[in-house]
Design a protein around this nucleic acid. Structure first.
Lengths: 334, 334
DNA sequence: TTGTATGCGTTATCAA
DNA sequence: TTGATAACGCATACAA
């Protein structure tokens, strides 16, 4: 159905390799022939076949970004930063949304093994269910950068993580000065098993901060069967205010969740920020244009994206992969 | 680098077609051979090459969704609805974000001509710069469904549009009853030329509604060089309150814009909804969890996605394309 | 039940 | 400057 170089060859009386060279502006094709072919290709509506090119060339000029939730503008912002670097280097970017579902996450990572793109930046929730696939990507020399995934020594992958400690220190210090004492932490949607893992990972990270918390009682995560992050936040907010009225500071992993918590606070008769201060880990339009006062960390998605792209670029340049890269970006307090 | 059926053939002592058939669970391959091959494929980490399959089969089992702005959860919601139908039919979905940029929009639509997917659902802003490409997609029998694009008789494409009149009528009637009189309309980011076109299209659509407006003075659109929709809304809000203090109702095309307008209202000392009522055309968590009262239409994205997918499915089923499809979905008032 | 041969659309090598 | 031929990975018609 689609026009191929063979069709153009037939129509022009030239051989198909000549057509191919003309279309690729090969130096050893006469100007006259080139113009003939170009005109013909334009008239016939020729577009080179993606599959044909990829099969022959061995590369796609496409990078994939795999995100957990496109409804969260945080990930959209990452995509946009990443695309800027990619475009500068001649790559197109396609996005996969795994909707916070483990099966979809695995499925998309598996797809990356089929050669449908040249490299991947992925917000991997955990290596629990993806380790095999991630290791295979490494063996196949398909660059994968895992973003924000807790380190895992058994798995070969490049990673970019954000260090929020300093920013948290400052922000919590400020809140402490304003009289806040009791912190609750609200994480995203995840399985019980992963939540246990995250707790283990976060507790030492959060030690010695100006605000105190009891990780067993005041860590919350959204149920896996939720429908939207705002809704998740609302439910958790209701739970917090019911179970633990002393909480005066709530930090959410996703800025969107803060909207739900705000609603829960309103219903519980709590004022923001007088009774409860809200902080989000991320800083997008969601936090900047919230109609209630809230603090936010800046995860420096621009830097994260830049690091991620740089790693992929380096991996594509040099196929002698030795040690995994681990880059750290420092979050800022806004 | 990657393992192919040839490698498995060599390792198993079988011929490569046998391997191919075994992997595809072909009925005429002995169970013993199959199990051998499967075990070997698993051990060697075989994954079928995307390009190889596509080149041979002529299809990808992939559908593309092209959206103007992933930072707007409205489009993310569409993607999710669309993916549900696609997954039920064995299709994977990839997303392209053209960031409200004409050149990227054209680029992605052009890419669809290379056979990188089996069908496309796209929020096409205008056929001004895409007509040639869209017509070529039609000729090449690559299904494209344009969503929310004003009709254009010169171009061959299938379309799904939303009819908001009835819902608007009800919502404006209600606002009128509450004493609102002067409406301003805020559209998305677009060129002057496209804005003129949109005005022309919208004015008859909006005729005889309970609220009055002067389309020349009270239609606004965001500048093309904006950075986020919330920011766009803020700027326009400031402009409205400065230029036309009588405005008591503002309808935004994108719910996100309302957040910016809310901030502008706050700064102008206007209360919501007492002094200015806000309405959004779309209904996502953005409107549902706004910390200020706002009305919203429901564009029935689930229905829109269903129609879009149904059209693509039908087009793939029957390659005898006659007349373009035009489907209408009725918006609802929430 | 399995092997041989072919072609999908492209680019690259080599020969003319 | 151009043409003949091969190769990328896969699926399938046909032969055994």
């Amino acid at each position: 159905m689609a026009v191929t170089i063979l069709d153009i060859a037939k129509a022009s009386g030239k051989s198909f390799p000549t057509v191919s060279r003309a279309l690729n502006d090969h130096p050893k094709i006469s100007v006259k022939t080139k113009q003939e072919i170009w005109a013909l290709a334009g008239k016939m509506g020729y577009r080179p076949s993606f599959a044909g090119k990829v099969l022959k060339n061995g590369f796609t000029r496409i990078l994939s970004v795999i995100v957990p939730d496109l409804a969260d503008p945080f990930y959209a912002e990452f995509v946009r930063c990443f695309k800027a670097d990619a475009a500068d280097n001649g790559y197109d970017v396609v996005v996969y949304d795994y909707e916070m579902k483990r099966d979809l996450e695995s499925r998309y990572l598996e797809m990356m093994l089929t050669g449908c793109c040249d490299g991947v930046a992925a917000f991997v929730t955990s290596f629990e269910h993806t380790a095999v696939c991630v290791n295979r990507l490494w063996e196949a020399r398909i660059p994968l950068v895992a973003i924000g995934t807790p380190d895992h020594s058994q798995v070969h992958y490049d990673g970019v993580n954000v260090d929020s400690r300093e920013a948290l220190n400052r922000i919590f210090g400020e809140l402490h000065r304003r009289g806040k004492r009791n912190l609750a932490f609200v994480f995203g949607r995840m399985s019980e098993a992963l939540f246990a893992q995250v707790k283990e990972y976060m507790i030492p990270t959060l030690k010695d901060l100006p605000l105190q918390f009891d990780a067993e009682r005041n860590f919350y995560c959204a149920a896996e069967n939720g429908t939207s992050q705002a809704e998740d936040g609302y439910r958790i907010g209701c739970e917090i205010f019911a179970r633990n009225p002393a909480i005066d500071t709530i930090m959410t992993w996703h800025g969107v969740q803060a909207y739900g918590i705000q609603r829960a606070a309103q219903e519980a008769g709590k004022r923001i920020p007088e009774d409860v201060a809200l902080i989000a880990r991320d800083n997008t339009w969601v936090t900047r244009y919230a109609a209630f006062p809230m603090a936010a960390l800046d995860q420096r998605l621009d830097q994260v994206a830049k690091e991620a792209f740089a790693i992929i670029k380096e991996r594509l340049r040099n196929k002698e992969w030795q040690e995994p890269f681990r880059r750290i970006v420092k979050a800022e307090h806004v």
